[in-house]
Design a protein around this nucleic acid. Structure first.
Lengths: 139, 139
DNA sequence: CCGTATCCCATAAGATACTG
DNA sequence: CAGTATCTTATGGGATACGG
């Protein structure tokens, strides 16, 4: 008899965190749930794992920072990025409160994503990655 | 007829990178392979994804920085970290040249991990994560 | 253009047991 | 103590098609 497998992968881990509210460390941050903010015991550490653990997340964040902030444009820019996955990432980053989704009621529909104030904090992490990259390259 | 699934997850991505040598961007760094250094077209971006994407990696790096650098001690410190996964992470981080494995030929055997000079660059990333955490907590 | 839905399968990580 | 091996299962992400 084998016990059921623990939830382990990034997206699953996130769900688990939200459900159980169990912290990895002592801090808490906010996670946006539908229309209200719900406090959960998720850490930046866990958030970073959950985000970076998902393929294309860093790519998407980089793109938006470069000003490529419309889904269609992103897909055109990146080879191999499918609609489904792109949307999953955008939804997730939005749920995390890192991105804000701006919908323009036009025809054809237009949507733009931008960093929230909260999300801007995360850019530091992207920065540090690029900084390391630069350091290692310059040698 | 469905084509074989592309290799997509962190560890798999790493293998793919090493095998094909296809870069995600224009930079190259080193990956330590057995006893010689082999240049491969892996980027810090990809490396970070591959590392952080794996559960417990950040935890392990944090532990080592705190001076908890022996496998047994790590396991005692962290709840839920199994031998198998811990070892997988340590091997990987060592292969990446981020950690150095120091073996003391004693009995009982003693092993200690420490950051390589190369690996110290990565501490910036951990730092930035902790900085963000601190920023978000202090509000 | 934007988003959702379905199908599919290689695989990450937990559980467990075992060796030097 | 350090590390390996085997088994297991839920799931991330690609492919594809469809709807507003």
């Amino acid at each position: 008899m084998v016990k059921s497998l623990a939830i382990t992968r990034p997206i699953a881990r996130e769900k688990q965190q939200v459900q159980t509210g169990k912290p990895l460390t002592k801090w808490s941050i906010f996670l946006i749930n539908k229309k209200k903010k719900v406090q959960t015991n998720m850490t930046v550490h866990a958030m970073v794992e959950s985000i970076v653990g998902c393929k294309w997340s860093l790519t998407v964040l980089s793109l938006i920072r470069q000003g490529i902030n419309r889904p269609g444009a992103m897909q055109r820019e990146v080879d191999g990025l499918t609609t489904k996955v792109l949307n999953e990432r955008l939804v997730k980053l939005t749920r995390f409160g890192i991105l804000h989704k701006q919908i323009y009621p036009e025809s054809p529909p237009r949507v733009e994503y931008q960093f929230t104030e909260f999300g801007q904090h995360f850019l530091q992490i992207i920065d540090s990655i690029e900084k390391v990259q630069a350091e290692l390259t310059s040698q």
